[in-house]
Design a protein around this nucleic acid. Structure first.
Lengths: 247, 247
DNA sequence: CACAAAAGTGAGCACCGCTCTTGCTTCCTC
DNA sequence: GAGGAAGCAAGAGCGGTGCTCACTTTTGTG
């Protein structure tokens, strides 16, 4: 506890110490817990996720789970990070698979992939884009994974802006442009003009609104419920919203 | 239990029987319960809403609450209906207060009012536009109140379409237009063309996406967090999205 | 006034998150 | 290699939840 009491090697930096058998067991059990947690999340949703049920599933007594997970909220945080990473990866993959296509086509492909991911992982989607769980406050660890998806969209728009694909860049008020100060400061190489950024964020929120409406039942009895209808409707929404950024 | 066993007056239809003292007491206590529920919802959010806590607040033993509310889910349904009505009324009031203004100005006023309501009632907002609560399925009673808000928007757009205010009506694919069959059938006097309807629904989802993003923290560190900045940013989003419907 | 319906009570069930004590095993360090 | 520290599993337990049930009390009415 005293100042300079601890030798350097015992401090926070782990000098590639070989993993012991216990370490491997711990990693394995932790993975088992996370798998069970993912399964339960997929079945019952975030609100009903139960540490006790997870413990039962991995054959543990309920209190033992706390050796691996500090709390239910911490588990949820892990799942949130996983979900952000998964949806971000889905967007990145979609973009990579059409990297040669035009910007509007990339935009469409990426948003279709995002919607597809949301439809196949509704509870994970709700976890990150639904209402925050009761007393939950997003820790810092989630911001980096949460950035992956919007980054893909920004990349597409930036490329389109650079090669002149964007026809009519939108115009927004000076006041609205100034509101992006925190973003422009935190993202180093952000040379897009701010009107385009406001429009980009608007499309981002708009299409997540569309996905949320579909997933949360707000277009029930409004849009035909067959999968093809829903897909066609979302395609139309993509095209409409794409105009906001001039695509 | 036998067929024709019960005399007509005892059947389901209440023939304007004057309310007894007990009826009034029941209505009063029910109102007390709903008030306590609203307060608790505003404080802790839908997920943590507790019947026992509500019972404590109104000075009841926990089991007595079930004489007035059949279950927690039923209470939530009531609160959902109230929330739909409240946000719908906010939209209607805003529209009524600017009924003489132009369609774009009405559009702005209504959406500003919706956002304002959401900011002052975040938990009620999350209740209806966030992720649905765990095992919850929206009963039929909620659809009518849920219609009030979109109806306001449709009215504005229909009026703008009728008097020629809408400059460039958007075009969407035939396939997307056909997806609106259920809506056109269920809403009797809906003479808007379907492209405009698709665009209208898109703006609807888009701006709720914007509000949800703000409320659920997705533009944290992106848009400056001062209330005036957020308002200016939302105004810009309104204007951008309004173009989708040609306003 | 008597009686039935409604309202209120308290115990109890099964579940939850989480804590703490108690043994046991594994690992690290002399 | 021995000893001690650290990690791990187990079980009991606390206070909370939704909800049910048998029971008593209140209350309106024929």
């Amino acid at each position: 506890m005293g100042v300079m009491a601890s030798p350097p090697r015992s401090s926070a930096a782990p000098p590639t110490r070989p993993p012991t058998a216990r370490d491997r067991a711990r990693a394995e059990i932790t993975a088992e817990i996370m798998t069970a947690a993912r399964e339960q999340l997929a079945e019952v949703g975030p609100g009903s996720l139960s540490l006790r049920a997870i413990a039962r599933e991995v054959g543990m007594v309920s209190s033992a789970i706390y050796r691996y997970v500090p709390s239910r909220d911490a588990l949820l945080t892990r799942l949130i990070i996983e979900a952000y990473d998964a949806i971000g990866a889905a967007a990145e993959d979609a973009q990579a698979s059409v990297a040669a296509a035009s910007a509007p086509e990339q935009f469409r492909a990426v948003w279709r992939a995002i919607r597809a991911w949301a439809l196949t992982n509704p509870h994970q989607y709700a976890l990150i884009y639904g209402s925050p769980v009761p007393g939950y406050r997003a820790p810092v660890d989630t911001v980096a994974p949460a950035t992956r998806l919007p980054q893909v969209l920004l990349n597409i728009l930036a490329a389109a802006g650079a090669d002149g694909t964007i026809a009519a860049p939108p115009v927004v008020s000076e006041a609205a442009q100034r509101t992006l100060d925190p973003m422009v400061e935190s993202v180093p190489d952000l040379d897009a003009d701010r009107s385009a950024l406001v429009a980009a964020i608007t499309t981002w929120a708009a299409l997540f609104g569309a996905i949320s409406f579909e997933l949360f039942g707000h277009i029930h009895n409004v849009v035909a419920s067959e999968p093809e209808s829903r897909a066609a409707f979302f395609d139309a929404q993509i095209d409409l919203v794409a105009r906001l950024v001039g695509l």
